[in-house]
Amino acid sequence: MSLPGHHRVYEAPAFDTPPLPPDMLAGKVALVTGGGSGMGLGMAMALAQAGASIAVFGRTAETAEKGAEELRALGRPIGAYVGDVRKPDDIAAAFDAAERELGLVTILANNAGANYPVLAESVSPGQWRSVTRIAIDGSFLCSTEFARRLIAAREGGAIVNNSAQYIWSGFPGDAHSAAAKAAIATMTAAHAADWKRHGIRANCVAAGFFPHARSNTSNVMEDRTGLMIPVGRVGRMREFGWVSAFLCSPLAAGITGETLMIDGGDSLRRQLMSPAFEPPRDRENPWGNVP
């Protein structure tokens, strides 16, 4: 199956023509959780393109360092720090090290997360805690550590949280992540309200399909996935990274407490008459199959 010839699909500008100039975030330090790969690396790349130094914070040294190596090619100061976003001591140590080596962290990208298809009745307590605590606790703990340091230093800053397109619709077959990602969006607004008076902004990007190296999707699979999406393609990682960097930039100084959906219209595709409903537990894959 492929797109009919009369359907028109448009791409964003190429990676080497980003929206923000290369010095817009010069002198700023951004800490990106899960920044060594996937969507975190996408955020880190866009922030580095705009001039920021990057502190990659990840659970495995190998992944964090690999991402840091890619980022260094952009010519910015980069550090890789290992720790678990569920552990306050690990978070404080990463901030300490980043401040020592790169400077005060004034941009935080909360990206660390985990996700996989599973029916609710099959989710073990450990699986539930793992997914929700990495996403919700991790974002909360990193954000509060970030804010405490900025408030003490009397500096403003910006937080961008990675959420998901299904936060307003639910996601059958993905109860743990559906709950966690929606929590992040509402918590974002609460943090924005708490910290506006300190000059700390908090926003959220709710992302659709953005395949990356760890998605293990082939180009053919990406094309087939794109058929599901109103704009006719999957998202490109640079698009997700760029809009995240925009929200952290001075251009968005008046934007806080908001969630920006970037999903090519995927969360809106609905028709009054649809194929017969198939409960997630009757499907081969609870998430459904690509066309």
Partner: peptide, 16 residues
């Protein structure tokens, strides 16, 4: 074009 993957959204600036 930077918003090529953004459609159908209603977002605020600062609704606090």
């Amino acid at each position: 074009g930077y918003g090529a993957y953004i459609t159908g959204i209603v977002m605020g600036t600062d609704e606090l």
